[in-house]
Design a binder for these strands. Sequence first.
RNA 1: GCGCCCGUAGCUCAGCCGGAUAGAGCGUUCGCCUCCGGAGCGAAAGGCCACAGGUUCGAAUCCUGUCGGGCGCACCA
Length: 623
Amino acid sequence: MTDVLGALTASLRAAIHDLAPDFRGDVQVQEVPADKPGDYGSPVAFTLARTLRRPPPQIAADIVARLQVPQGVAAADAVGAYINFRLDAGAFVRGVVTGAARPQAAERRKVVVEHTSVNPNKEAHVGHLRNIVLGDATARILRAAGHQVEVQNYIDDTGRQAAESIFAVTYFQTRYDAPSNGSPRKYDHWLGELYVRLGQAKETDGEAIERGVNEVMHRLERGELRHEVERVVRAQLETFNALGAEYDLLVWESDVVQAGFLDQGLEVLKNSRYTSRPTEGKYAGALVMDVSEFLPGLEEPNIVLVRSDGNAMYVAKDIGYQFWKAGLFEGLGFERFAVQPSGSPLYTSSPNGELHPDGRTFANADEIINVIDVRQSHPQTIVRTALALAEDPRAQKAHENSHHLAYEVVTLEGRAMSGRKGITLSIDEVTVEATRRARAVVEEKNPGLADIDEVARAVGIGALRFGMLKSEAKRMIDFRWNQALSLQGDSAPYVQYAHARACSILRAAEGAGLSVASAEERADMDALGPLEVKLAQVLARYPRVVETAAEELAPHQVAQYALDLATAWNSYYNHKDTSGRPDTQVLKAEPGLREARLLLVDAVRRGLADTLDLLGIAAPIEM
RNA sequence: GCGCCCGUAGCUCAGCCGGAUAGAGCGUUCGCCUCCGGAGCGAAAGGCCACAGGUUCGAAUCCUGUCGGGCGCACCA
């Protein structure tokens, strides 16, 4: 059907074309401030003043005189230099509740989003929480904008950290007791503690530990300890799934190397004129890459890819991985790894896997998004730059379409977290506490509720996720219990509550024999007024919000919109006439108006649920 | 030193590819359940939008500089 905003812009353009045929500028249409006449307005007359050399109010009047207002718009008036539109309430709200406008990305692309990528050697902490939630929400938003999204989680199974944890088990001659044995601790937590203890033991027994860890690293590279790592990965996945995050694919570093992506990547780069193998100087024997042409101003433009001892740097492996994401290489095999809570399969790279399990093709992305904290900007820039200096058109294209979604760090009550030192707060601990607090409130507010555990989880974890998403990624977050788990104000529960309230009305309507389906026939949309228009205008923003949030990789815009919609709805719901009586009631309104309002409430309900879903937050129908 | 990011109400933040009187939440004060859910709503108080220049009909928004803060610049990741 019609998109009123789009139609308004088009009709303005048509009218402007008469006056200024050469005008190519932007024609904005925005919501009008509360106390000004009209619903939408445009300041375009200001912009035209320069070329037409006439006062903006005159131009506004001229445009209004020529304007053919589109359907759904009652009138256009010049208000000073602004051109304001009064909406036809019935037609406008009808358009909105029937979902006239849907998010639509400019072109559908295959987008690979890599996020989480927690070292497989300890439990995930609240710093990782931000990564997971940000990546997950971004993937959801991109999907809603119409893209094909593949979420990858990289497992650094050959790194030092994994080696240390695994070595710690033998070093301390201990073994994991299953939870039934009176030790309720998850495997990743248990292992993480050994990791921290090993760090301390290095002070007195450093050499032996160093030898042992190195040996484990070699065994990891040969893939001998895959099961040990897998055990941690599975424990961590429980945490991620509990947060509502799911993945399409686990990519193991050892597999990336074994598939030859490291070597192939290096081969591509070696053929470039930007890499060299100095025979003297401080880089003698190493393979270095000169990025000065692409990143001017660096003090040290030479990046070591392969050390003089022959070992590849981490960034070199990352480059191989990135090249594969972009579709330059093939040869990684996959198999099914798990079934996730939603029922969707999780695949993993595997030495014995198939290229196309269940007919699926991984990677080969048009667009690559790496969700990593801002401190990784330097290596991320190098990975991206490597694409630019590989002389391959696909790499060039991937260079342009690679993004580092950088987010600032999360501190803990003002202090930097450190997994190595054990200064952390685990996600598991936080989700348990969040759920506990939410449950206490639900019990108090809604004692008879049936699915109390499920609702408490939705509210508690929703609050956590929302807190991680509501402000821009480049903002630092200081994790504080009371703030993170707040159930009121600018929070997920605020939005969830608004949703539950809308559900409650629809339930009551159903009980009175009034269904949404039947309302569609009997609704008298023309009985609606300015209050409904105001609410519908917020609903009408939804498609643009999704589109720009996807384009700008900015989930916080969706979170802010969720608050706006909930506020608009709460405000409508509580509205009173001048004598102080409620004047927006649904069920007690006269027939016709009643059904029309019911349709609007249903649209609000859907809008809130959809918006929360983009953030990975559940919308309980009662709470 | 060089590079990136930040500076908006007491605190935490929206608003930033220029547009109407700068908006929320928390906190403070007052009011609202005879009304479909008070986890809510309404109102008050609280702002040289760090500072100084510039561009513009118009600047929190763009440009330059200054000050203050954070992060990054390894043959670590």
